[in-house]
Design a protein around this nucleic acid. Structure first.
Lengths: 228, 228
DNA sequence: CGGGTACTTGACAATGGTCAAGTGTGGTGG
DNA sequence: CCACCACACTTGACCATTGTCAAGTACCCG
């Protein structure tokens, strides 16, 4: 029982991008350090400003990383997908979490205590490289978010979001609430609602509930670039 | 002559955060890979969208990393200080530079070609760790910028900027033009100008040319938090 | 079927961007 | 050493985008 348990955990750990390409021994080491935690939908994992003891790697569900201001407005920095780490920056920069984390669905993650993980990583170049790779990806994504907020109006940001979600098909279902989408995109629910109908009126998209269909990709792309 | 040259270069390389803690041999390896480049004030180092062949480490001067939109509005993602790398994310994510880079002063940097550097880093955990550390720092900084843009008005962002520059003394001189500061803070010159005089009228600061003196730290801190 | 939450829509206000016209100010050349 | 030009910055008037507050509607879950 404990044995199958361990095997299951090793399988989960293998699915984490940070640990891809590791051999058996290395996986064992990671396993011995990892603490499995589960979170219910809506549960706060940590809050901004809290002391950072370590970082997480999500294996199931979804987690949002966000900031809030005094008035309660929220900005979502990113949604974390299974396989990906979050709060890894806490490992080497600063002693507190610079943002909050909350489970958006029922979720499970492995927690890695900072000191132990640092020791581990020093002798495991593969993990270090994997870490650099995912951080590089996050860095790009953040740069894009900054660009969005500073240089695009909300119709452009929304267009960008929709285009990303429809790289292959021509339609998709929102996997988050519209108010969360608003917070991701850097606006509020009301404005998102209006912008969505505006795009629909222009004939670029069709919206029914959470289902969005793209009718005119070119139109969206122009918006993204900054035309009107 | 070539010998003193090399020694000078090794000294420069030693001053780069990515390569701190390396032994002689490792420094040699890095040296053999590094291409020294100089840039005049105002010179474009690379443009957004350009194929990314490698990354840079600044050793002298200053460089800005920025995005521009079609209307020509600019958002500065960061100013790079000597010792720090830029475009390192290009090493492992994507084939093009996601932003542009330009020398703000006469500058010098070492260029590292991606493939070669990747090979090097695999056997040099120290470099990998250093890389993770600096990326973690950049990640934090970006998160902060996103927070600023999404959740603070420009007076709050400006207050934050001034507070950061006056952690020890109570006054400082702007090391960039006001229009560049505006672009860093996510606004335009006119608004920055107005905001500066507004803060001065409230008695929080005193401005003369590029010199800024803080008169009421508490007031600035409130602005940063979101009061008005 | 009921109740609550999420979303939409409307009217309004405000932050901040744009355009245009000054006002320096520093550096260069006469 | 002064005059002048270019450029950075300031200030004013205006307007657009977006946020706020409020009310109404739809939809989902129990």
């Amino acid at each position: 029982m404990a044995e199958t348990d361990k095997r299951a955990r090793l399988a989960e750990i293998q699915g984490i991008v940070l640990f891809s390409g590791l051999d058996e021994n290395e996986l064992e080491e990671v396993h011995d350090l990892a603490i499995r935690k589960t979170f219910r939908k809506g549960q706060v994992i940590f809050s901004q400003g809290e002391a950072a003891e370590g970082f997480y790697s999500l294996i199931k569900g979804r987690v949002k990383i966000f900031k809030v201001n005094l008035e309660g407005k929220e900005q979502i920095l990113q949604f974390v997908s299974p396989g990906y780490p979050f709060a890894e920056a806490a490992l080497f920069a600063g002693k507190t979490y610079p943002a909050g984390a909350q489970a958006v669905e029922d979720s499970a993650a492995y927690f890695f205590e900072s000191d132990g993980f640092r020791k581990l990583i020093i002798n495991r170049p593969t993990i270090a490289i994997n870490m650099i790779v995912t951080q590089a990806g996050y860095l790009r994504r953040h740069a894009r978010t900054i660009e969005d907020l500073a240089l695009r109006e909300v119709s452009g940001r929304l267009a960008g979001y929709i285009l990303e979600k429809t790289l292959d098909s021509s339609n998709f279902d929102l996997d988050i609430s519209k108010s969360q989408l608003a917070a991701r995109i850097g606006t509020v629910g009301e404005t998102l609602s209006r912008t969505l109908t505006k795009l629909a009126e222009k004939g670029f998209i069709k919206v029914r509930g959470r289902h969005i269909e793209v009718l005119n990709r070119g139109g969206l792309e122009e918006l993204l670039l900054g035309a009107e």
